[in-house]
Design a protein around this nucleic acid. Structure first.
Length: 656
DNA sequence: GTTTCCGCTAC
DNA sequence: AGACGTAGCGGAAAC
């Protein structure tokens, strides 16, 4: 399809109408970094089903922005922001759907799962993204998931580097977490609203887990106009509040919670929490760091300590941590307050609600409430669906039982009679037809034995009981059963996991003897003679020391293993900016990108195209700089560059 | 007070 | 194959 599209490129190359004054404001609305809130309302007014007329050869800027660019922005949000019902983004949902569809029971290589997912769930994007999504869903180190829906079998990354240390998808395996099906119940599978892609049933609009998973594992996402940031909460807290709602009681306030985190999370103010690590002061000079705040990775903290060391703020530090355990020993010249706390906020919790509308939630309790009512309705639907299904099964069984009775007592004769005649008898005896009576006539002859007859009667009885039992249960009863079952399993897994962590943490590491400095040593380091000058390195000095360190590192050109993280520094405004276009990298990535694209747009290449346009607009000044133009006055030029993108595509398709 | 960085799905 | 660079938003850290 794409080949065909590009072979007829002249037909698809459009030119922009001359730019008008209102257009300038629209361009600003679309691209200005400071106008996220304006973009929120711009997107809010979007009418689904709006498309750019593809037959027109001339496109006005306003049509382009309001009918084409907005489609990209909407898609950007849907893929980046989760649903309040299952806490999943479409990519993650496709992964889960595919695992369920495959009835994943034994471990599978991540790279292989990626292939399966893109095939089964119409995933139209790059494999790298999907790999990262799967790895993310399976991570279980402190600060990642509270309940990882997939299992990490192999190196899925650790808190050393915040998961960036994961191995390649070729080397690692995954499987469904046994808890996953307890949360995403099989009984709900038939009542979900499945989406359709080219007449193939793919993942549902959203799953309906038994607790709001968006709070359990949190979420982070960046879209257009909107972004979201939801911290993790304790599944047991969430569960308890769901029960409270069922009892019509007031819910308890909740603070964020991270599995196996040993520090503390305290409410500082409305929607703001302080996250503290653990430092133990061993003696005047030595302190031991036993835990870092959530999201502060061990490697990052090491670099922070290294900086302090280089700047002469601390004397030494030693590391005894493992993948799971944080453990630094810091030796300072004096009591030095180590930075060991961060904050978490609940001020930007954005989700799509059950109606598919993007919405900001102020508190976790508001999220639970909204989840609750929709989920409750799904339990009612589940009950109705299940009753109907049991009734059908029972009906079939009863037909079979009656059929056998009639054969045995001779009122229905089968032996040596033509089928048509038997079928007429069956009709007059009012048997249900289902599959043209094959379910009756196709029964084994052994069904007529005493044992089988008794067994069939028993099955009928069981079905009747099942029907009766279920019809007496309320939606609340069904939900409670699910919650109880999950809670028991979760606590068991949780305790095992915690025991493993405790064992790891309490394992004695070979610590050096606590070191006390002799007077001579202190004098040697200048602590005694000039203690005041050391303990208060003022800002100026710190900076100069830092500079020194940096230049030294550069001069050596041989950074040792404990090298200081050299922060990227853009040229300052007073210096002549060194503007550079990474032409090769960009062209390469763009060239590759036009090959694939998602089908949610009217034309192939739109997703990529919009990204390129954004890139061009944002970096416009840079590009012109290469041609010796220092500043561009005419915004229209931007869109002429866009036109050259089309020429570029044409060029690509002409390469033999 | 301003700039940079982080997190994440996509290219 | 791996390393790198881009968009987009909000908030914290760094300058």
């Amino acid at each position: 399809m794409q080949k065909q599209y590009f072979s007829d490129l002249p037909k698809h190359v459009k030119s922009f109408s001359p730019i008008s004054e209102p257009d300038r404001e629209l361009i600003d609305l679309a691209f200005n970094k400071k106008k996220a809130d304006e973009r929120k309302s711009w997107l809010g007014d979007f009418v689904p089903g709006t498309y750019l007329d593809q037959s027109a050869s001339n496109i006005s800027i306003s049509d382009f922005i309001n009918k084409e660019l907005i489609l990209f922005s909407v898609a950007d949000n849907t893929r980046s922001i989760p649903s309040i019902m299952d806490g999943l983004k479409p990519g993650q949902r496709k992964v889960l759907f595919s695992c369920f569809k495959r009835n994943l029971k034994s471990e599978i290589k991540v790279a292989q799962l990626v292939g399966y997912v893109s095939e089964q769930s119409a995933y139209h994007h790059g494999e790298q993204s999907l790999c990262a999504t799967i790895v993310n869903m399976a991570q279980d180190f402190v600060g990642s998931n509270n309940i990882n829906l997939l299992l990490p079998i192999g190196s899925f990354g650790s808190r050393l580097q915040g998961g960036k240390d994961a191995a390649s998808s070729r080397y690692i395996y995954t499987n469904l977490n046994p808890l996953t099906r307890l949360i995403f119940s099989e009984h709900d599978d038939p009542i979900l609203n499945y989406l359709d892609e080219d007449n193939v049933r793919i993942e549902p609009e959203y799953y309906v887990p038994i607790i709001p998973m968006v709070l359990v594992n949190g979420a982070d996402g960046i879209g257009t106009g909107w972004s979201t940031s939801i911290p993790n909460f304790n599944p047991l807290d969430v569960l308890k509040n769901i029960r409270k709602l069922m009892q019509n009681e007031k819910m308890d306030e909740m603070a964020p919670y991270y599995k196996n985190f040993r520090g503390e999370i305290l409410r500082q103010s409305e929607g703001k929490f302080v996250v503290n690590g653990i430092v133990e002061q061993l003696d005047e000079y030595n302190s031991e760091i036993l835990e870092l705040p959530v999201g502060t990775w061990t490697q990052t903290y090491k670099e922070y300590l290294e900086n302090l060391l280089q700047n002469g703020v601390i004397r030494d530090y030693k590391e005894y941590h493992t993948e799971k355990k944080v453990n630094f020993l810091v030796t300072s010249f004096k009591k030095f307050p180590l930075k060991i706390s961060t904050t978490l906020t609940t001020s930007n919790m954005v989700c799509f609600d059950s109606e598919g509308k993007i919405k900001k939630y102020e508190t976790p309790l508001e999220i639970i409430k909204e989840f609750y009512y929709t989920r409750l309705r799904f339990y009612t639907t589940r009950k109705e669906y299940r009753l109907k299904a049991i009734k059908e099964e029972l009906n079939k069984l009863e037909n079979k039982a009656r059929f056998i009775r009639e054969v045995i007592n001779g009122r229905l004769v089968i032996n040596n009679r033509p089928t048509d005649s038997i079928v007429r008898d069956l009709e007059s005896m009012k048997f249900d037809r289902f599959d043209n009576f094959e379910y009756l006539l196709g029964m084994k002859i052994s069904s007529l034995t005493k044992e089988k007859v008794e067994k069939l009667n028993k099955e009928c009885e069981e079905k009747r009981t099942e029907y009766e039992t279920l019809s007496r249960k309320s939606a609340y009863d069904l939900w409670s059963e699910d919650l109880d079952k999950f809670e028991a399993a979760y606590i068991k897994v949780f305790e095992e996991d915690r025991a493993e962590y405790d064992a790891e943490v309490s394992k004695k590491s070979k610590k050096p003897l606590k070191k006390k400095f002799s007077t001579q040593e202190l004098a040697k380091y200048g602590v005694i003679a000039e203690s005041s000058s050391i303990k208060k390195l003022d800002k100026k000095e710190t900076t100069s020391v830092q500079k020194k360190v940096k230049s030294k590192t550069k001069a050596n050109d041989k950074p040792d293993k404990k090298s200081v993280k050299v922060t990227k520094k853009k040229a300052k405004s007073n210096e002549q900016p060194v503007k550079k276009i990474k032409t090769e990298a960009s062209a390469k990535s763009f060239g590759a990108a036009v090959e694939s694209d998602s089908s949610e747009f009217s034309n192939p290449g739109i997703n990529t195209g919009i990204l390129i346009i954004k890139y061009l607009v944002i970096n416009f000044q840079n590009i012109m700089c290469c041609f010796g133009v220092s500043e561009v006055q005419n915004t229209r030029l931007i869109f002429e560059i866009l036109a050259s993108w089309c020429v570029f595509l044409k060029f690509c398709t002409q390469v033999p």
